[in-house]
Design a binder for these strands. Structure first.
Lengths: 211, 211
DNA sequence: GGTAAACTATGATAATTGTCATGATTTCTG
DNA sequence: CAGAAATCATGACAATTATCATAGTTTACC
């Protein structure tokens, strides 16, 4: 957004609206036509896809400042993922006309968008390869590290984002029971500790070494 | 490329060069800085990533008309994948200055690029979810259908692209032995037939239904 | 055309992960 | 605060997939 001129920014500000969602609310579902993009102001949401067996897989967690729905707006296709609030969140909605207009008239904005997508693509490819080549145990360790690095921890050291075991299973791509089992193992091994559903990383170095 | 003006096209044509590679040749490796993008003129190549255990995973097969390396050029990062020729191929190389120049001056070209990346991103996300949620058997069936749909078959019905069992294993994300076993099963079930390493799809309908 | 190298095939077995069942905790809500 | 609902935990077992071993086939090349 920082690539827009003052004039353009004024227009965007004029037409953007703020929306609030509660934990568990669906921002949009798979196979919808979006009318704009969302930017996360506060809170966290997940992008997921439902599978045939009723489970869903979490492709990405989105935090403050991240754009949701840009891919669909650019390609003009329906959404391939759904977006669901993981806690109470505040989004700012910008109509697609605004986005597409700026893309066609402001090269810098357009290039910024290109870089965003390039980054997302790289991440998706890396995730694909992790999924293909790493064990559930290793992917779980990486998921914990990812949540830690991306969303930080509170004063007492617990991960800021409170995900259920089911959420972790959905990120890692495994059964909920397997996720629980592995987290229990990590606890026994002293890699993490838990307090209710809150998780604290106790030994990052060894967690990074998990194989 | 069709979004360029005559003038711009003339410039691209002036600086582009044609390169030939033999089967197995490395076009570029992981973690390289690219000086331009490649467009496939003839033949097929694969984009792969090596894992810790020495196996590699194939992210995508690239055929005639497809662009390679655009992500790296746009993000300015090193490559995350390597590109390897699957048969004798002809590529046309365009220096990055040309591409970046056109992105900054031609909105239509830039938008076309955006749509390319959006498409790639969608495919990568879909692949990721397939990897997470489908069985090896199902992914193998889909790989065969993909190769059939994308690269077609010869007069006698065999798949045009001749991939080794190891190549299939790398696409599906499994051990070579598992890939061989599953193809043998498919053969017994009458879904496919083979002649040497050439594969013919005998029953597409049932292959699509594999679970 | 023969030989080495690469690839395909298949069995036996082990490791990983999923599924089902059941109970303990925690969290939510009135 | 109590009861219900959701979540977490763990065992037993089944299914899937990987690994190792070994042999047959095809392909490439001198």
């Amino acid at each position: 957004m920082k690539t827009l001129t003052k004039e353009e920014l004024k227009k965007v500000t004029a037409c953007k609206t703020t929306r609030f969602y509660k934990k568990g609310d669906i921002i949009f579902s798979e196979n919808e036509l979006l009318h704009g993009v969302y930017c996360v102001r506060e809170g966290i949401c997940k992008l997921t896809k439902l599978s045939a067996n009723g489970k869903d897989h979490t492709v990405k967690l989105m935090g403050k400042g991240e754009l949701i729905g840009q891919r669909s707006i650019i390609s003009g296709e329906r959404t391939n993922l759904s977006a669901i609030a993981l806690n109470d969140i505040e989004l700012c909605f910008v109509p697609k006309e605004q986005i597409l207009g700026n893309i066609m008239t402001n090269q810098e904005f357009s290039f910024g968008m290109l870089q965003n997508l390039a980054q997302d693509l790289r991440e998706a490819e890396d995730d694909l390869i992790n999924m293909a080549q790493k064990s559930v145990r290793q992917r779980m360790a990486e998921a914990l590290i990812y949540v830690d690095k991306t969303f930080g921890k509170s004063e007492n050291g617990h991960l800021n984002v409170n995900l259920s075991r089911e959420d972790y299973a959905s990120i890692v791509g495994t059964a909920t029971e397997s996720a629980i089992r592995i987290l229990s193992q990590f606890k026994k091994e002293g890699l993490i500790s838990t307090e209710g559903k809150m998780i604290k990383i106790e030994n990052l170095t060894d967690l990074e070494r998990v194989e």
